[in-house]
Nucleic acid binder design. Structure first.
Lengths: 129, 129
DNA sequence: CCTAGTGTTATAGTTAACTATAACACTAGA
DNA sequence: TCTAGTGTTATAGTTAACTATAACACTAGG
């Protein structure tokens, strides 16, 4: 039922990002357990080791903590830490590349801000430099 | 002298994208030869096979043509084909993800449009949902 | 104690990306 | 003809990502 995987990024990182997104969106709150390794592995038809690898990144970042025999739980303060870190990463690594691409393609950000398919038929003009 | 490689994408694809960018930016014009496989390999300290693989993608896309013993040359019409294709790819695959990320992080596009480090100290406020 | 649920480790195999080294086939120019 | 430049192919090895299968160690609840 999901859009499955993106070939431009390893699965374990996409899993990590998915959890981060859930925390930022408030779907998972501090103190909550993560969906279990085995459950996720089964649901997405992926190897448990792959899920674990993604989860371990969050442990290494200090966002999540392991409780032996019980599960993995979201640490206090996780959300604000993530918000800060992800913002910094986005601004430093992703946005400059995206902005350069948009300029190169002659896409104006203002036209992309409407949520829907803004493929506006307004002006399908040729573009020259 | 370059920012080297990005670990989130295979080198051969980054090479392909680099050539595409040069074509879109007009640095390489239709009819021009691509920098030779061996030169690029030497300059970026990369295996010639890796460069070839990137170049081959462009051949498969019909953007570039091989002339035996002479080099690889940019086809007529390459730029407009690329402009159309890359725009479509960007709008379908990259922008939705980027937009979702920005919303999640509470980043407003308007604030990101100034080219410089818009790390504006204006409001370093806490954000709540 | 037993069971079912956690995370974790071990073993081993596949595939894609990348590497080093070398050789082949072709073309233009001295 | 020779040389230096093209793209291309062959052989072989390394690493990271992912897989299957199984077992280990711990915890909560019946």
């Amino acid at each position: 039922m999901d859009r499955e995987w993106n070939d431009s990024q390893p699965i374990y990182r996409q899993l990590r990002d998915r959890v981060v997104a859930m925390i930022l969106d408030g779907v998972l709150k501090e103190g909550d357990p993560l969906p279990s390794v085995r459950n996720v592995a089964a649901e997405y038809r992926v190897n448990p080791l792959t899920v674990l690898k993604g989860y371990q990144e969050l442990v290494d970042e200090g966002v999540v903590e392991t409780k032996r025999g019980r599960g993995m739980f979201i640490n206090a303060g996780a959300r604000s830490v993530l918000l800060k870190g992800e913002r910094q990463k986005f601004l430093a690594e992703e946005w400059p590349r995206v902005q350069a691409t948009m300029q190169r393609l002659g896409l104006k950000p203002e036209e992309l801000l409407n949520g829907a398919s803004s493929q506006s038929k307004s002006k399908a003009k040729q573009e020259e430099r």
